[in-house]
């Protein structure tokens, strides 16, 4: 690659200075009932959510979701002709999910090209959404779901799932059910629903905390089916079970908000004529 010699290039790898601040100054983990983001919510409350549909006029359907500092936008295109024709199963449609982070979304600047982590999240998103979409109604075609995380504060996958299912519904893609996502952070014996970035940070002081981990779950609320489940960290099976249960409850708390958002979008347009 030609190099512009007039320009002084920085080192290949650079770090944000904020990484080296002592952890104590940032640390404000939930003590008692109050959460780190200084809101009034308790450990088992989700962040207040703002959601809207139909912002992107170019796309078939779109949605925007905001939970605390996490901001996600999603567009749905299609159904359109499949690009790849090597699929043997032409009877049902193909769902394609793509999840990306804006370079400025996280604390550390990301690259524009999709990294391994984003590919993994895209796969997680796809597997969470697929059970909810009536793909057999779209033979020979492809539905594209593009999620862009504008700002990330805490695990983004759960909100991405919710946002994507809103966008799919806005696009008029037939679905068996809405898909809602929720994350819970388990530390020791405490559970924090919908954690922020500082809450999922491992304690870097070298103290190893037993039984710590995060669980992300996607739920189809009417069918009471779990369409996606991912966890990391080290947890006992009992805590895992409790975390899964907490996630399911979190999803049910989320449902009225999402329902309301969708109905509001439908209501904006004139009802069909009676005939």
């Amino acid at each position: 690659m030609p190099v512009d010699r007039r320009r002084i290039r920085g080192p290949d790898e650079s770090q944000s200075p904020y990484h080296f601040i002592s952890k104590e100054s940032q640390k404000c983990l939930a003590s008692g009932d109050r959460r780190s983001d200084d809101s009034q919510r308790g450990p088992l409350d989700i962040r207040p959510i703002f959601a809207r549909c139909g912002l992107n006029s170019q796309a078939k359907g779109s949605a925007y979701i905001e939970a605390g500092n996490t901001k996600i936008i999603c567009s749905v295109y299609g159904p359109r002709e499949t690009e790849r024709k090597d699929e043997t199963d032409m009877k049902s449609g193909r769902l394609v999910a793509d999840m990306r982070f804006a370079p400025f979304a996280c604390h550390k600047r990301g690259a524009w090209v999709q990294g391994n982590e984003e590919k993994d999240l895209s796969l997680g998103l796809l597997e969470s959404l697929r059970p909810g979409v009536c793909l057999h109604k779209y033979p020979r075609s492809q539905i594209d779901v593009c999620v862009m995380v504008l700002e990330s504060d805490g695990p983004a996958l759960s909100h991405a799932v919710t946002c994507a299912s809103l966008a799919l519904a806005d696009a008029g893609i037939e679905m068996y059910d809405m898909v809602l996502g929720c994350t819970v952070r388990h530390t020791g014996t405490t559970q924090l629903l919908d954690p922020t970035f500082s809450e999922v940070q491992d304690d870097q002081d070298g103290v190893f905390v037993e039984n710590q981990g995060s669980v992300t779950l996607s739920l189809m609320p009417n069918m009471n089916q779990v369409s996606g489940l991912q966890s990391d960290g080290v947890m006992e099976q009992e805590s895992l079970k409790a975390a899964v249960q907490a996630c399911i409850e979190g999803c049910y708390k989320l449902y009225p908000v999402i329902q309301h958002t969708l109905l509001k979008t439908v209501r904006k347009n004139a009802p069909p004529s009676e005939n």
């Binding site: 779990v226 991912q230 966890s231 099976q237 895992l240 079970k241």
Partner: peptide, 25 residues
């Protein structure tokens, strides 16, 4: 020791919560 470090659902279908508990066990 029986600690769980990672759980993942793979495949296109969904599971009901009860069977997830059974499966983790």
């Amino acid at each position: 020791t029986g600690m769980v470090t990672c759980v993942r659902k793979v495949g296109g279908g969904s599971l009901d919560p009860e069977s997830i508990f059974e499966m983790t066990e």
